Amino acid sequence: MEILRYAAFSPTPDGGNPAGVVLDARGIDDATMLATAAAIGFSETAFVTPAADGHLDIRYFSPRDEVPFCGHATIATAVAYADRHGAGELRLRTKAGPVTVATEVDSSGATTATLVAVPPRTVGLPEADLTALLAALRWRAEDLDPALPPRVAYAGAWHPIIAASTRARLADLDYDMAALGRLMREKDWTTIDLVWREDAMIFHARNPFPPGGVVEDPATGAAAAAFGGYLRELDLVPTPATITVHQGRDMGRPGVITVTIPAAADSGIHVTGTAVQL
């Protein structure tokens, strides 16, 4: 198979989140996909199978397991596809549901992709789960921002939203990987979305991902989509709105995720970013 490597949510190879991309995965079985993702070593690798109806069936594998949806690998796949076949709209079938993604090329030649995730929703985070999560993170209750209450948010995959009261708290990531991984596997959480609000429309995020065998995901589009749904459902931003999520700075791989939040409660969240081939 031909394996491409792209960094998503960054215009340069040294930023954003690297993803593997296989644009033609016909005839590749699950075990080979998982082994390939493990060999590549990125947080996700996307495997695309063209379908007769014009859709693209897409699957996402971390080094350890398959996940239902991955935002940064979707952005990387769309840009890789545009590099080969020209910009336009793709209709993807993911295990989480249908996702559309559109690409365009600007005057500088850079390609930008915008995905529309499946409709988001949130559920409460039980007190016992929050206590266990904070213990695994080595955070205290007073480290939380009361203006952004803990919830579990979904836009293709489940992510607890945990807001830090200070940028310093977000920067100091030193968690119990084994304990957090056990809790996340038990609760079917894909990553933990740790966020800090710089101002009304600018946020910073970090995403531990121990179930995938990754300490931290540098830029997480699925979590950003879920976070956009969380902000809308809890009326934490006026909608329609466009927010900016900065991620990866603490890892030395800065990335920028643009999240557009439509006003309609049943509409999908839009996630936009660039990608560049490694």
Rank of each mutant, 00 (worst) to 15 (best):
I3E: 06
A7C: 14
F9K: 04
S10F: 05
P13G: 12
V21W: 00
I28L: 15
A37S: 12
I40H: 10
A46V: 09
F47T: 01
T49M: 11
A51H: 06
D53Q: 04
L56P: 04
D57P: 02
F61N: 12
P63K: 06
R64G: 08
R64N: 14
E66Q: 14
G71W: 01
H72K: 05
T74A: 04
T74K: 03
Y81N: 11
R84F: 04
R84G: 06
G86A: 03
A87N: 10
A87G: 03
A102I: 12
S108P: 03
T111D: 13
A113T: 11
L115P: 03
P119H: 12
P120D: 07
T122L: 09
P126R: 00
T131W: 00
L133C: 00
L144F: 10
L148Y: 07
L148P: 05
A153N: 11
I162N: 03
A164K: 11
A171N: 14
D172A: 15
L173V: 10
A178C: 05
A179D: 12
R182S: 14
E186W: 01
K187C: 00
V195H: 07
H204F: 10
P208V: 01
F209I: 00
F209C: 03
V214Q: 07
T220L: 01
G221M: 02
G221A: 10
A222K: 01
F227H: 03
F227M: 06
Y230A: 04
L231R: 07
A241I: 05
I243Q: 10
V245S: 06
G248Y: 13
P254V: 15
P262T: 05
A264F: 04
I269L: 12
V271Q: 07
G273T: 11
V276D: 11
V276T: 15
